[in-house]
């Protein structure tokens, strides 16, 4: 009996300590688009270093999924999206405090196997028969950007697969299942030596804007605003540039 009681007490204590803010500090929850994984990871670390006791918790997923979670009432302080449409949805649901602001841009590029063995040179080359090309599905931001480029160039692709997110496209190129894929510049950079890039100048005319906003009902509104401003600071811009993002 005593053993049971002791175990129970230990469990309750553990649960209590899990609920309490880490140390004497506080937690800041940031919902960020999956393409921001590297840059926001670095930003979070720098932010924590500047703010003793603050624990930045990143929830990284597709922008649309995050928007959905926020609308369903997920507790979040900051939302950084990979396109304006999803941010508009969150704003329309009345969850955004103030005006969202664009902090970065991203554009598509062509990812191919290292060394570009098939000699792909342009977007038009992707329409060659026999080539396995993978893109994002039209409803997700990278997919709508791809459609936009098709419209601009007048070249229609016949993809082997329309993936749900850009990381899935990158994986298909990485593993060699696809000959080429349309991904963000930032993805090519993060993949390092595993893929090569073929420049896609037309993509500059179909770039995504990345807006960020502090959310209403944020548990830590002060810290949230500080984090948003941190994204626009010199440190923030450097990290984003290093990851391959363009300036707004």
């Amino acid at each position: 009996m005593r053993g049971v009681r002791a175990a129970l007490a230990a469990t309750v204590l553990a649960a209590a300590s899990a609920c309490a803010p880490a140390g004497e500090g506080t937690a800041l929850t940031v919902f960020a688009a999956a393409s921001l994984t590297d840059s926001f990871g670095a930003l979070a670390e720098r932010f924590e270093a500047d703010h003793a006791g603050v624990d930045v918790r990143l929830n990284l997923a597709g922008s649309a999924r995050l928007a959905q979670q926020i609308q369903e009432g997920a507790p979040a302080d900051v939302y950084a999206s990979a396109n304006e449409r999803t941010m508009r949805e969150v704003a329309a649901a009345g969850r955004v405090e103030g005006e969202p602001r664009t902090f970065a841009t991203n554009r598509l590029t062509i990812a191919v196997a290292p060394g570009n063995p098939l000699g792909i040179e342009s977007f038009a080359d992707l329409a060659e028969p026999g080539l396995t090309v993978v893109v994002c599905a039209p409803p997700v931001p990278c997919g709508s950007a791809a459609e936009e480029i098709e419209r601009i160039t007048g070249v229609t692709l016949r993809p082997a697969s329309e993936e749900q997110n850009v990381k899935a496209v990158l994986t298909k190129v990485r593993t060699g299942e696809a000959d080429a894929g349309l991904v963000y510049v930032t993805d090519v950079l993060s993949a390092g030596q595993e893929v090569a890039e073929v420049e896609l100048p037309e993509a500059a005319r179909a770039s995504n804007d990345y807006p960020v906003a502090v959310l209403k009902d944020a548990a830590e509104p002060e810290l949230a605003r500080e984090f948003r401003d941190f994204v626009f600071s010199d440190v923030g811009r450097q990290e984003l540039l290093r990851a391959g993002f363009g300036a707004p």
Binding site: G62, A64, R65, Q68, V134, A137, P139, V140, P159, A160, S161, E162, E163, Q164, A168, K172
Partner: peptide, 27 residues
């Protein structure tokens, strides 16, 4: 399916894959 076969309407996009895709944009 989505990992191995991908997702393309009429070829590899089965009902669950279609549902997953729509859940992202149109619940």
């Amino acid at each position: 399916t989505i990992t191995f076969a991908g997702s393309l309407e009429g070829v590899t996009r089965t009902l669950p894959v279609e549902i997953y895709q729509r859940a992202e944009t149109d619940v």
